[in-house]
């Protein structure tokens, strides 16, 4: 089982894990290409600071069947569960989606739908999208930002959108570098661990979440009104 507790200060020499979630399904996929470039720049910037980093790729296309089953059954399994564990262990995430019908890929939304609500809390995350026209440029800010706000992720201030003409525009590289800078800064400062280390209990968690799979009894928060009620306490006192 993968370790999921992020504690960057305790393990300074562990390579930082950057995970790409690619919803593009063509080969080659321009969404994938965009995510790869952001990942490479992020690694470069981390290494420049003496921080080793590695990249893992979650391609959603091959997981499409598993994602559909998980939507219906409620339980991610097999390779999809492996992907969930990779995300749980990620120090930074790059999400890349094509724009379909003026929106994010349904495959990406379905994937996020089956994640535990607390899986991406305080996780540094770059939003990126590709589209056939620049008129879809607001899909990231309209749709992806609100989705990952619900997930309580730390989305970088810069998102990266690429329409066909952008691939010939040096300004795209500028935005990629800016987003990579923001992501690497978040990873390097360990802000995620600083947040979750202090207030993890204050978020809503469901038992057995993949965010902290080994945390069943050891990390469990017993200091709640419901736990007091479970152990013979009075709800009258607890609610007054």
């Amino acid at each position: 089982m993968s370790t999921t507790t992020q504690n960057l200060t305790d393990t300074p020499d562990e390579p930082r894990r950057i995970v790409i979630v690619n919803a593009g399904t063509s080969d080659p996929s321009s969404s994938r290409m965009l995510a790869d470039r952001i990942a490479q720049k992020t690694i470069d910037q981390l290494r420049a600071q003496g921080i080793p980093a590695s990249v893992r790729l979650i391609d959603l296309g091959p997981l499409a069947g598993e994602i559909a089953h998980a939507i219906v059954s409620g339980f991610p399994q097999g390779a999809l569960l492996d992907a969930v564990h990779q995300l749980a262990a990620a120090d930074g995430v790059i999400v890349a989606t094509p724009v379909y019908k003026a929106g994010m890929s349904g495959l990406l939304k379905s994937f996020v739908d089956v994640l535990d609500n607390d899986l991406l809390i305080a996780k540094p995350l770059v939003l990126s999208a590709t589209a056939g026209t620049a008129r879809h440029a607001l899909v990231i800010d309209d749709q992806l930002r609100s989705l990952f706000a619900f997930m309580r992720s730390l989305t970088t201030p810069t998102s990266v959108f690429a329409a066909p003409e952008d691939w010939a525009d040096p300004a795209l590289l500028g935005r990629i570098e800016r987003a990579a800078n923001e992501l690497s800064a978040m990873i390097a400062t360990g802000i995620s661990a600083a947040i979750t280390g202090k207030v993890w209990d204050k978020y809503q968690h469901s038992f057995g979440s993949n965010a902290r799979p080994d945390g069943a009894a050891a990390e469990f928060n017993f200091d709640t009104d419901l736990m007091r009620l479970a152990t013979g306490g009075s709800s009258v006192a607890a609610h007054s």
């Binding site: 057995g208 017993f222 736990m227 009620l229 152990t231 013979g232």
Partner: peptide, 25 residues
């Protein structure tokens, strides 16, 4: 099937805990 508070109550009183063990992996 999913509620730690119920398991906690069963444990606190020394009662039994039953998981229906259905419809899940």
């Amino acid at each position: 099937i999913r509620t730690p508070e119920i398991a906690e109550q069963a444990a606190y009183y020394g009662n039994g805990f039953f998981a229906n063990n259905l419809f899940a992996p």
